[in-house]
Amino acid sequence: MLYYIGAISLILIGMYAVLTKKNLLKIVVGLSIVDSGVNLLFISVGYVKDATAPIFSMPSLTADKMVDPVPQALVLTAIVIGLATTAVALGLVIRLYDHHKTLNINKIRQLKW
């Protein structure tokens, strides 16, 4: 239950940063926080109480004492994709700063570069 509260709090704080801040880099920081919250939500969906990690390293472990391995495999990919998305967004921010010499989104008005 506590994990869901933490994940939803992170998603809401990131949404607040994306919707209200004027600085482009702060918006990218908010997107990164939303990404972290979604990852935590997916992992906590697959958690089983009093279970252990899905790695067969000892012969006494059986499959009914393990947590669900499918969300872990999905989130393992999603973390790397989140890093690539953040890098592309920062590249776009650097190109906009080179052209407009500002980061305030109220001063960037025309659509053409």
């Binding site: 920081v29 990164s32 790695i55 890093l83 953040t86």
Partner: peptide, 26 residues
Amino acid sequence: LQAPDVALTEAAIGVALSTIIFVIAI
């Protein structure tokens, strides 16, 4: 939450690489 492989990836990416790309952008 019993997911040591995800924790390992998050440690490698979040502490080192994410900080580096933000510092380069700043």
